[in-house]
Write a protein that binds this DNA or RNA. Structure first.
Lengths: 196, 196
DNA sequence: CTCGTTATTTCATGTCTGTTGAAATAAAGA
DNA sequence: TCTTTATTTCAACAGACATGAAATAACGAG
């Protein structure tokens, strides 16, 4: 008949912060940002709500910490720019995106990020800058030629279309197609934007 | 020193319902769904909060009524399927989308709808069915041939990419390009998906 | 080992949001 | 004129996030 958990610091050295972060990640991935309440997370972590504010400041802060990206999406795309073979560039980028966004370990967080970029102004700003400076710009420099920036923009738009239809909105038939089919259908279009 | 507004029905026959709807539309378009509170709308309309529930049931209901679409987006795209000229189909659809989504009178509501489809499960379901049944299916039937459905899916994905990058996320350079430039950059890719 | 300091934790409270039921008032109709 | 109905505000609730105070354990200096 010990009193469950009294006030004050707990015995031992439990990493409560990480406990909270893990609970939050699970909830956010399963239910999305809006649907999850701090009390849900606190309940899962076996902790009072106020402790979340203590560690993370706000719900936004918690989301940021819980969803810290396992990979830098910009890097995933841009890495392929090193390879000098321009003819296969579209396919390589496409496959990278499909791999990373489809991976159960990394994909869900990236998908949540994309959804967040639509809702939250701060996240939107962040994505806009990241995509503009780190992706579109570099692609433009890489492909060169007339209208390089516009063509890079078109390329980005098509990639965004894939991500939103397949992973965020989950529109059929794109959402259920196997990677090879996606590549077959989209590679020519993407390559056209890159190739000039 | 008349008491401002007492309880009970007002004199005259003011269309309070429409007043509320207009105030809500302005707010939703300016600030988005989450950021707008029912008390904001009630304040703008000079009305008690409870009256909103009386007329619209819930915040969702208010949003639905305020954002009732001025045009059916599906129709905008599908209308062009009547014209037998397949070679210009991509360009015609593209220009229709750019016109309707860019029109200050109709565009903002469509943009809000797209953002809502990412956040709200009900809206998501709605959009998924509408796009799947009314757009992708019909395009597939129209273009025919092998992989017709997959190619129609790819077409839809690219259109979604345009809408999200240009109107929702507002990524540069796509967001600032004039319609002619957008058409020049994307028509070939879209036509490739349609053409087989 | 002891005692002040610091980090962690819950409690209590405040403010804000959407929603609901009751009461008041004007319009509509017999 | 008088009953019924539609419109409107008031009052209150449950649940959300956030914050300041209080309690308690760990830590470190001597």
């Amino acid at each position: 008949m010990n009193k469950p958990v009294r006030r004050g610091r707990r015995a031992g050295a439990p990493d409560t912060r990480e406990l909270i972060r893990d609970a939050a990640r699970a909830r956010f991935l399963a239910e999305g940002y809006q649907a999850v309440t701090l009390r849900d997370v606190a309940g899962d972590a076996g902790v009072d709500v106020a402790l979340i504010s203590y560690y993370f400041g706000s719900k936004q802060g918690l989301f940021g910490a819980a969803m810290a990206l396992p990979v830098n999406p910009a890097t995933v795309v841009v890495a392929e720019l090193e390879d000098p073979d321009v003819d296969t560039l579209a396919e390589r980028m496409l496959r990278n995106v499909l791999t990373v966004w489809g991976d159960p370990a990394t994909g869900p967080q990236l998908q949540a990020l994309a959804a967040m970029a639509v809702t939250d102004p701060r996240m939107n700003e962040l994505v806009r800058e990241a995509v503009g400076n780190e992706i579109t710009q570099r692609i433009a420099v890489r492909i060169g030629g007339a209208d390089a920036e516009q063509r890079a923009g078109a390329f980005t738009a098509q990639m965004a279309g894939l991500i939103f239809t397949r992973y965020v909105l989950r529109l059929e038939p794109i959402a259920s197609m196997v990677p090879d089919d996606v590549v077959r259908q989209l590679r020519p279009a993407l390559q056209a934007s890159l190739g000039g």
